[in-house]
Design a protein around this nucleic acid. Structure first.
Length: 570
RNA sequence: UGGGAUGUAGUGUAAUGGUAACACUGCAGAUUCUGGUUCUGCCUUUGGGGGUUCGAGCCCCUCCAUCCCAGCCA
């Protein structure tokens, strides 16, 4: 221990592949002004989910690390699916994570005029044409994965006719689906994305930002690279499924007149086992009313996990631990739980709440007496604040903290056994009161007055300690306990019948416990940690007007449940 | 079976031609005013086969496996 300082702490400098690319580009003067510019380009067609956190952390993180910047760009080129509500939510979620795009908030729709002009220029140069094939015909002409496609019969239209048609498309003179602007690349390319990709389609849809000004909208393969170029993006980082689009990206940034040439790099998206992470499916859960909204605490959306009490720090730590690579893997849910637990353990305020109450009557404690004990908010914290907890003759403890016939290795309350009520007294169980059906209604105990504060003069030890709540002084709260996020039975990505797969794993518990000072405190916000194996969060009143809800954030290692199972098997 | 990518403990990620490692999980033990926390220990790894090299997870060849692509979505 005295040699600590002499130990050479090996600086861990291993870089991920993107950092290596950037450092190499920087070292070789390939970055204009040495300013790394990335972008996070979500389509505002839904709420951001946990998977997006990886992309956000990579793009904003890289910009931070290398002293550049990251633009927020809303990729709004499909007016039928996009909504202002989503834009607001996206911005809130990124900010919650602690990232700031400053003044660099852009919209693909800001570039509609530029894009249009570039398209006209492509037509003039004979590099794009108006195709009048139907969607079905186009598909047929495209060929298959193993067979080359054929040129559209409209491919050789004159430049004049193409120009006229495209202009008419813009003016709304043609119905949706009648014409489409395509790039002339190569119908026999083994890469299907290069078989004369569509550039512009007709859509008589109202756009939330441009209204009815346009009725032709540019496609991703055209919009994205040019938006990147226009914004001076140096490193355009996306997920693996766009690898096949990189040639199209390079084609677009090579168009005459497009000044800046960004480069696209791809990384593996985040998959977490049993977690449903597809905007389409999440939207479905919302539409079908299976959840209360995108921010339902069971949803793996950023707003959902925020409501359950996950912290941005924990999620960023999680992403850091997952790493960045090109391997399509599936991360264990338990790693995310670990990160949340680790963070919450350091900062969560501990409050005692009984979720599944069992009444305890202390026969030798005076009726009507109320005594207060001091509890610390967070034992992990030095000089942690304390608060007073009322103790009375009748209390509630957790139902699982009592067993009439104890299992092996059970050292909580059972007839004849002595345990400690945290911060208060030692009690010993004597007798049990049951109803006709044999359900335990209450347990009668006696307490040791000398054990006040949780220790005794003779320093005898007890093996069990339980949390408790006063029956008369406590407050009743409506609690909804969520175990995990919506999980699928499919360990990889959720598939077809994911709705059947979903295991809500939630239950409603209404504890009988009544007002306690610490519960009132909790109601003002923050983390509420408690219980043997779990952390709980209480939503702040502000964010859930009228819906006081308890959310159990994570299930800790369910060691108790496992032990119980083991004992049952023995 | 066209093209593009990827294979390192159960999972994720390092090792950039020089002793295969870190974290999570799992298992065991110690501590403990909650069977939590904390601490300690253990288990398990380079997809297969060739080649180059004094030396290969890394370079070459080959086989195998997995993922992505046939929207007028992004």
């Amino acid at each position: 221990m005295e040699e600590r300082d002499d130990l050479e702490v090996k600086e861990k400098t291993s870089l991920n592949f993107l950092e290596r690319i950037i450092e190499d580009d920087l070292a070789n003067g390939r970055v204009p002004n040495n300013e790394i510019i990335t972008r996070f380009p979500p389509e505002p067609n839904g709420y951001l989910h946990i998977g997006h956190i990886k992309s956000i952390c990579i793009n904003f993180g890289l910009a931070d690390k290398y002293g550049g910047r990251c633009n927020l760009r809303l990729d709004d080129t499909n007016p039928e699916k996009e909504e202002q509500e989503y834009i607001n939510a996206i911005k809130e979620d990124i900010q919650w994570l602690g990232f700031d795009w400053g003044i660099h908030e852009y919209y693909a729709s800001d570039y509609y005029q530029n894009l249009y002009e570039i398209a006209v220029r492509l037509i003039e140069e004979g590099k794009a044409f108006v195709d009048s094939l139907s969607a079905e015909e186009m598909k047929e002409y495209r060929g298959t994965l193993t067979e080359a496609g054929r040129n559209s019969p409209y491919r050789e239209r004159s430049i004049e006719e193409n120009l006229r048609l495209f202009e008419e498309m813009r003016q709304g003179k043609h119905p949706e689906g009648s014409h489409i602007l395509r790039a002339k690349i190569d119908m026999s390319s083994p890469n299907i994305n290069m078989r004369d990709p569509a550039l512009y389609r007709i859509k008589f849809a109202h756009h939330m930002r441009t209204g009815d000004r346009w009725c032709i909208y540019p496609m991703y393969d055209f919009t994205h690279p040019i938006s990147d170029a226009l914004e001076g993006i140096t490193h355009s980082i996306c997920t693996l499924e766009f690898e096949d689009h990189r040639p199209a990206y390079d084609w677009a940034t090579a168009i005459d007149g497009v000044e800046h040439t960004p480069h696209q790099y791809e990384f593996a998206r985040l998959n977490i086992n049993y977690l449903v992470m597809s905007k389409r499916r999440l939207l479905n859960l919302v539409k079908l009313g299976i959840v209360t909204g995108w921010d339902d605490p069971r949803m793996p959306t950023i707003s959902g996990i925020r409501r359950r009490g996950y912290s941005p720090e924990a999620m960023k730590d999680f992403i850091g631990r997952v790493g960045v690579a090109k391997v399509e893997g599936v991360v264990d849910y338990s790693l995310m739980e670990f990160c949340v637990r680790e963070d919450l353990n350091k900062r969560a305020k501990r409050l005692m709440v009984v979720l599944d109450p069992l009444k305890i009557v202390i026969d030798n404690y005076p009726e009507g007496k109320v005594e207060y004990f001091e509890a610390v908010a967070n034992p992990e914290e030095e000089n942690s604040p304390t608060h007073q907890i009322p103790f009375t003759r009748e209390l509630y403890i957790e139902r699982e903290d009592f067993m009439e016939i104890p299992a092996k290795k059970y050292h909580r309350l059972y007839p004849g056994n002595e345990i400690r009520l945290k911060y208060a007294y030692y009690i010993t169980a004597n007798s049990v009161v049951k109803d006709e059906a044999g359900n335990i209604l209450e347990v009668h105990c006696t307490y040791d007055p000398l054990s006040k504060g949780g220790t005794t003069p003779d320093e005898r030890k007890v093996k069990g300690t339980s949390h408790w709540v006063s029956a008369s002084e406590g407050v009743s709260i409506e609690a909804r306990l969520y175990d995990k996020l919506f999980l699928s039975e499919n360990p990889g990505k959720a598939t077809g019948n994911y709705l059947d797969d979903l295991n809500p794993d939630s239950l409603v518990i209404v504890p009988d416990a009544k007002a306690e000072p610490e519960i009132l405190k909790a109601r003002r916000g923050d983390y509420l940690q408690f219980i043997r194996n779990g952390y709980f969060t209480l939503e702040s009143k502000e964010s859930t007007e009228g819906h006081p809800v308890f959310n159990r954030t994570v299930t800790l290692k369910d060691s108790w449940a496992k032990l119980k199972l083991k004992m049952e098997q023995e």
